[in-house]
Amino acid sequence: MQLFPCPFCGDRDEREFHFAAEAGKSRPDTTGAVSDAEWATYLYAQRNDKGPVREVWVHLTCAELFVLERDSVTMAVLRATPLRQDPA
């Protein structure tokens, strides 16, 4: 049972959280031309890094989306920042 930090609520049981996506992806402007490859990259391509990762998580109970930095091998939690302040 991991403990994850919600930037607003603080440390909570991992079952209160949901992994949403890798951080740093942005949706192509679909009102313009988007190639099949570009769209597939947005939808499907992943870094899937082994080690430190930056991911978007949701604290389901309070619905906060945030960027969670953690280590995908040791499970160490490094940092949690609200998505709205995410500079990336």
Partner: peptide
């Protein structure tokens, strides 16, 4: 959940 996700992201 989907609405919240698009709202914030």
């Amino acid at each position: 959940a989907l609405l919240e996700s698009w709202r914030q992201d």
